[in-house]
Design a protein around this nucleic acid. Structure first.
Lengths: 200, 200, 200, 200
DNA sequence: AATGAATGAGAGTTCATTCAT
DNA sequence: TATGAATGAACTCTCATTCAT
């Protein structure tokens, strides 16, 4: 692994440990095993390092999503979504401290936006991808025609996102058991709907 | 309004404008119309001010929620939930930059937790409240028995939370039209369910 | 004397001792008897301090010049010019290290220019003032009609300027004796002219 | 041209563009088309490079001056001096930013002095050379006996020096027309003298 | 209670120089 | 001889906090 990669990894670790605001170049350099000067041979400035850390987030989820649409009609819808939700929960939980911290530094936020606007990427594309998948399954007749795929995607990923956020907020780790209980109850309800017998 | 309140308000405005990391005591004092010294006559330190700002967040939503359970059986479930979702979307959108920034300063996060643990409050209680309401409506037979009220609450509020987060992330304002489109499609889908015709 | 003045004075001393390039905020603060932070309570940045030091240069000469034109027709021209040349030599000698150093920092040069363009001042005005004086004396018939007052002013002040520059360059102090020898020979020659007997 | 020369030339260009204080080894190497390491294979250190740049200044003027004394009695005095003044103005204008910057780095100043003390050279020799020439012309009876050749030399070169300095200071380029106007008025006045009709 | 000048620790960043390749 | 990544000392500047007034 070259120094550049090492620095990004070190920076991520420092941010996870100390928080963005307490992440100093000194500490990043120490953890990367190089001098502070070397940071500046590899990156423009501290913000540039952080941007590279941010761009590496949600890798797992994005990987799962790139293959999702191709799995339309394959396996069960439930199983396919389960995989997505699992990856989402894991990645969100891991990334929340970094992704959220970005709001404390508008410069960073703007820099990050510019990055994914250029490449037409960004975290919000996850919802679009799930939406597209659900739409395909609707065409295949594997899920109800009259639900809104975007809303379903938003509820699925949104609940994971908020769950991860709140767990981090509360300083709680998530056990495998809690995780699968959460996932099952979300998917069950999603597949069921609230619809009452009569009116509502 | 006494100086204490003025300072908290000033601090919130400064954070909204500059971001937590670029919010200085000098600027807060200026906006509050007092000296930096006065900040320290009213609060222990800068973190203390921020904690008070944070505790003022989600006021709107929390207000709506305190009356929610009492409205079980009144009006339609849909209307009641609509009101919740509206308040949630508005408050989340407003508070995201502050709530998220907290992750950049672990000291702040810990201080905030301690505050709401003592008072058994916190943002995660919103979901519990909606859950309780839905449970009551199940008992009243106004919504399906076999959906999980917690999951429904999480999906509803979670999708709002993530939507607000992403809008802030992208630097987009939310028009009333987009907002109501989002809300309707979420509630429609929630009341419908994904259930396919046959298997899934 | 307030701190602001003390800092400017300290900065001038440090520059004279160490040169502009080796003048650090640390040392300026030390010599001014305050903290580095106080420098920034009184000035925007280091460059701002240097600009204020520069604006204080040539005070002596400028003082003499403001009264010069009013002395037209009073005393002898020679005596009046002697006074100017004396002040010029002294001020130039003192200021050369600062004024010259400015060229090493284009930002400083630009900042300095902006300052005196705004106030229609600057070192080049010295020559204009002497020119104006000589012109008045021409009108009074106390000096030849056919010499160019600007050229005479330029030669007088220019020779002083270069003399001061070279003495600094060589690291030589100028004794009173050398100084008056230089001045007399310049004024003698100026009052004499090179004109040959016949042609040239 | 060997690398050594290329480096000196590159350094001069960088100093002219960025100023001495903002001239980095990185940029000099880039402009010279070599690595930073090569700088140190050819010179002791950065200061050493700058010293070599400085020694290359005023080449033009020095060239004119070496032949000046030999032209005593040849052509007109005026024409001979005109040539000197032309070269001086040009060289001074070009070299001022470099020559002046030296004062910002006392180490450089001392190093430069040592260089020309060893070789009995230096910019101040220009004045001596013009003085010697004028003295010879006095002996030949082509200029007045009772003017001081040194003073005349100092005024001639001094006015050029200050003119060049001020033009650089003001950030003005000097057109050919302004230049010849300046030169003519200086030489006219030098050849005329201030001498009043009666006393002064 | 209110002030705001003074503080000083510590941050990010630059850059001449070195040395293994 | 040429390289250029790595270094680390030294720099400028920020800002929460204090305290004499």
């Amino acid at each position: 692994m070259d120094l550049r990669e090492k620095i990004i990894e070190a920076a991520e670790q420092v941010i996870q440990m100390k928080g963005l605001a307490r992440s100093t170049t000194k500490e990043i350099a120490k953890k990367a095993g190089c001098s502070e000067g070397s940071l500046y041979n590899n990156f423009e400035n501290k913000e540039d390092i952080f941007l590279h850390v941010l761009r590496g987030q949600l890798r797992n989820l994005m990987g799962v999503l790139t293959t999702l649409v191709d799995r339309k009609g394959i396996g069960t819808v439930r199983k396919n979504l389960e995989e997505v939700v699992n990856a989402a929960l894991k990645d969100f939980y891991h990334s929340i401290p970094l992704m959220a911290s970005i709001f404390s530094e508008p410069g960073l936020l703007i820099g990050y936006r510019e990055g994914f606007i250029r490449s037409n990427e960004g975290p919000h594309r996850a919802n679009e991808t799930v939406e597209a998948y659900l739409h395909e399954e609707q065409i295949l007749g594997r899920i109800q025609e009259n639900i809104n795929p975007r809303a379903a995607a938003d509820m699925m990923l949104g609940s994971c996102f908020q769950y991860a956020f709140q767990m981090r907020f509360l300083g709680k780790e998530v056990t495998e058991e809690e995780k699968s209980r959460f996932i099952n109850r979300v998917l069950d309800t999603l597949f069921q709907g609230l619809t009452s017998y009569k009116d509502n």
